[in-house]
Simulated assay, not measured.
Amino acid sequence: MPSCPGNCTDNRTEQRLLALRQSIEALKQDLENGGYGLAADSLFHKTIAEAADNSALISILSLCSELLSSSIELANAYVNTLDIVSEHQAMYDAIEQRNEKLAEKLIRSHIKRAYDRTKFIMAST
């Protein structure tokens, strides 16, 4: 049975790649303009979850969207959020290249960094 990143790389389509590229660009522009990039960040993660064909992940993202939005808003005050753009770009590149091992490594790293950022934020508030 393929892993989540395996499904992402196997099920990538031009339409999904376009959605990922557009969400990365929208996230970057919104952050550079002082916004939070919430819609673009949500679209990026939703597109990956759909490509992974992972209904549990889709449900979790949906249920946690409000919490994630709050974390992102706080993150803008405490961390370099443009790092998140770089993380998204690296994940996109691995998915585009169908590099399952690299995609898995980057997705795990992104989740850990998000956890670490959230921990840092909670300790700082």
Rank of each mutant, 00 (worst) to 15 (best):
S124T: 06
E100Y: 03
Q89E: 13
E96L: 00
F120Y: 15
I84T: 08
Q89W: 02
A114I: 04
A123I: 03
E104V: 02
K119V: 07
M122K: 07
A103N: 02
A114P: 06
S109W: 01
A103G: 05
F120W: 05
I121H: 08
R98C: 00
Y92L: 13
I95D: 09
L102R: 10
N99S: 14
F120Q: 11
K101L: 09
A114S: 15
I111V: 15
R117S: 10
K112F: 12
N80E: 10
R117P: 00
M91K: 05
R113C: 01
A123S: 14
S109G: 11
K112N: 11
T81W: 00
S86V: 03
N80C: 11
Y92F: 15
K119F: 11
K101G: 07
F120R: 09
E87D: 13
D83F: 06
E104L: 04
T81M: 13
S109P: 00
I111C: 06
A123K: 15
I107N: 09
S86Y: 01
A77V: 02
A114D: 04
Y78G: 02
R113L: 05
D116W: 08
I121C: 13
R113N: 11
T118C: 14
K101W: 01
R117C: 12
L82W: 07
I121A: 09
D116H: 06
D116T: 09
Y92W: 08
L102V: 04
D83W: 00
V79N: 10
L82F: 07
E104Q: 15
D116I: 06
A90L: 03
I107T: 05
I121S: 07
D93S: 11
M122L: 14
I95C: 05
Y78A: 07
E100V: 12
I111Y: 02
F120V: 08
I84K: 12
M122A: 13
T81K: 09
V85E: 03
A90F: 02
I121W: 07
E104Y: 03
A103S: 13
E96A: 14
K119Q: 12
D93E: 15
T81S: 08
M91I: 15
I84F: 05
N99D: 15
E87L: 06
I95G: 04
N99A: 09
D116F: 10
R98G: 01
N80P: 02
S124F: 03
Y115D: 05
